[in-house]
Structures are given as structure tokens and as C-alpha cells.
């Protein structure tokens, strides 16, 4: 177990660095950059990043597992959506394939999928996806008892102190998100995309499908973004327009005089400054979001986190500036949004 390897005399446990692999090329990049584990999904609605051009065929996954294992990296397969009744077979086949190929763990969210995997392949290691929304010790213990879950990916709504407290009350490992683009709504409990487009995040594995995204430019070159028929945001000429996601859009309401981010500003998560605390809070694995990101991004983020974790373990001051740089651009852009006249 990662937590037992190289735990330092300084009280830090060596965490497993879990990195995104949207494609076979990204998987190789992440492994080469120092990932202890990579996570990926099949090219269908069994995973929560079911986007065109992403994910793995059976043959690709098989080759990827060989590549990763040869370099002592683990492969975690996300089968973390919710099969609607009548279509369970696709998810059953995904579990069967995962067991046959020999992935190191399957990341599940649906109770039926978890139950099928636990009963059919008792040796197959199960991780509980953030999509299951288990945010309390009792909820996590339910999944451990019923399905033998070995690790929970915690919703990122918790503070480090709360994570440490949960660690004391559950019989499984903890994986925590540390970096990337994360929505404001509780994962696995959001039908906003389906409401606007007819495509379900939980059942189809897609949030804000590209086919329903529209950009409209007016005569002054202001840009309006829509999801389906709904306006999600507006940007003045030359500004960096965000991808229209309902929970990151701007709206109006009677309690406010102007447009505002009703749910969250379009910032991305960066917990690099909290790494030392997380590594003492009992977190077994640190997760980086971004299966939809480029290989260059994966390379930069994974190697920066690799160095930071290794520095902390060796009692060196971690260099976190690169990671801050990867998010700061967005923050500055966001700041500029506030002063525009159209608001």
C-alpha cells in the first residue's frame, strides 16, 4: 500500500499520486511524469467523462495496463455512472472486462454496479467514486459494509480538519481531490445538464455536452454562451470566454442588482498549499482532475505534484509556484470580468 511505502520519520505518509488519463497517450505521459496511479474510462457512458475523442477501447486499456504495470504504476478504471434500468448490461460488461484485463481497482458509484462487481469478482478492488456522494462516515461505512469498498474518493466540500476526522471513523482509505476543474454541485446528484439538454450527467456521463453548446457574437463582438436554449454567460470583446457550464454561469435574481455568479466563480481547485496537511490527515491518495486536458497539461501538473510530494517527504521546501501559475491565469481573467460595462 502506498501509505506504507517510504513514510518519513517526519510524520508524513507517502501518498499515492492519482493522475488523469483521458487517452492512452496521456496515460503514458502521466506515468512518465511520476504518477503512482492513473485513472481512465471506456469509450462509452459507463464513465463520467464520456466525451468524444476521449477514453479507451478494450485493446487500448489492455496495452495501457501492461505499460503502467511495467513501470510500477497502477491503473484505476472509472465505471462511475448510473445505469438506467434496462441498460445495465453495458456496465456489467465493463466490470467483466476490468476483471479480465486486470486493472488495479474499479471506481464505482452505482450500488447495483458495486454489488455486481463485489459478488462476481470478490478479488476485484473497489473504490467509491466521488459520484456516489458519500460525505459522512456513516455513508462511507454503508458502502464498505455492503460492497467491501477499499477506498473512498471524498467530495471536495470538506476541510482538511474534517477529512482527518472522517479518517478516524471509517474502515477504508481516503482519496482526496487536490487540483483541477471541479463543479460546485454535489457530484452524482446534479441533473442540471439533463434539464437543459436532455443528456444526463449521471446516466450518460456528460456534463455540458459540446453538441448543445452555442457561442453567439454580436456586432460589438461581445460573446454570449448558451447551453441548449439557456444563456449561461456573456463576455465583452477580447475576453477569454469560459465553456458554458450551468453551475459556473452568471444570472440575475431579485436579491441582487447586477448579474452574479449564483453558484461559483469559474475558478479551479488548487490545494497544493495544503499538501503537507493532507499528507498528515490520513489521506492515502491525492487525485488530480483533468481527463479532458492535453498531454502538456498532464505533464506539467503531474511532474509538479510529483516534485512537491517528494520534497515534502524529504523535508525540503516544496516548489509550488508552477502549480499556482497553472491556475493564476484563470483567476486574473476572472478578475477582469468584474469591471465590464455590460454588467
Amino acid at each position: 500500500m502506498a501509505g506504507e511505502i517510504g513514510s518519513g520519520a517526519n510524520g508524513y505518509l507517502r501518498p499515492e499520486l492519482v493522475c488523469p488519463a483521458g487517452t492512452p497517450a496521456a496515460l503514458r505521459t502521466a506515468v512518465d511524469a511520476g504518477a503512482d496511479a492513473v485513472y481512465c474510462g471506456f469509450q462509452n457512458e459507463t464513465n463520467a467523462r464520456n466525451f468524444p475523442g476521449l477514453n479507451f477501447t478494450l485493446a487500448e486499456l489492455e496495452a495501457a495496463v501492461g505499460h503502467a504495470h511495467a513501470r510500477k504504476a497502477k491503473v484505476l478504471l472509472a465505471i462511475n455512472t448510473f445505469p438506467p434500468a434496462g441498460r445495465f448490461n453495458l456496465w456489467r460488461e465493463a466490470i467483466d472486462a476490468a476483471a479480465r484485463i486486470g486493472v488495479d481497482a474499479v471506481i464505482v458509484a452505482d450500488m447495483g454496479v458495486a454489488n455486481y462487481a463485489a459478488r462476481t469478482f470478490p478479488e476485484l478492488r473497489l473504490h467509491l467514486s466521488v459520484q456516489a456522494g458519500a460525505s459522512s462516515p456513516e455513508a462511507i461505512r454503508f458502502y464498505c459494509q455492503e460492497f467491501g469498498v477499499k477506498r473512498v474518493v471524498l467530495p471536495r466540500m470538506l476541510t482538511v480538519g474534517e477529512i482527518a476526522a472522517i479518517h478516524q471513523q471509517i474502515p477504508c482509505e481516503i482519496e482526496a481531490f487536490v487540483f483541477g476543474n471541479i463543479g460546485m454541485m454535489a457530484e452524482g446528484r446534479c441533473s442540471l445538464t439533463n434539464y437543459a439538454t436532455g443528456i444526463s450527467t449521471n446516466m450518460d456521463g456528460v456534463c455540458s455536452p459540446a453538441a448543445d453548446v452555442h457561442y453567439e457574437e454580436d456586432a460589438e463582438r461581445n460573446l454570449t454562451t448558451r447551453l441548449g436554449r439557456f444563456v449561461i454567460d456573456r463576455f465583452t470583446r477580447g475576453e477569454n470566454a469560459g465553456y458554458p457550464t450551468i453551475c459556473k454561469g452568471r444570472y440575475r435574481c431579485d436579491a441582487r442588482t447586477g448579474a452574479y455568479y449564483a453558484f461559483e466563480e469559474p475558478v479551479s481547485l488548487n490545494l497544493s498549499a495544503l499538501l503537507p496537511d493532507l499528507m498528515r490527515a490520513g489521506v492515502t491518495a491525492l487525485k488530480i482532475e483533468g481527463r479532458q486536458r492535453s498531454r502538456a497539461y498532464v505533464q506539467a501538473v503531474v511532474s509538479a505534484f510529483r516534485r512537491a510530494v517528494d520534497d515534502i517527504l524529504a523535508n525540503r521546501e516544496p516548489a509550488l509556484a508552477e502549480l499556482v501559475a497553472l491556475t493564476e491565469g484563470r483567476r486574473e481573467t476572472e478578475g477582469a470580468f468584474r469591471s465590464k460595462a455590460w454588467r
Binding site: P83, R87, M111, G112, N115, S191, N194, N202
Partner: peptide
């Protein structure tokens, strides 16, 4: 969402299921 989930929960004592609105 599915019959497999229902079977797990029924075995534990669930007698009535109110479905998610998006089904």
C-alpha cells in the same frame, strides 16, 4: 436508477422507492 440497485436495497428492508425525477 436500476433493478440491481433496487435488489440490493430491497434485501436490506426497502419497501417503497421514489424515483429520481430525471428517469
Amino acid at each position: 436508477y436500476n433493478e440491481e440497485t433496487f435488489a440490493v436495497l430491497a434485501q436490506r428492508g426497502a419497501q417503497n422507492f421514489c424515483l429520481p425525477a430525471e428517469l
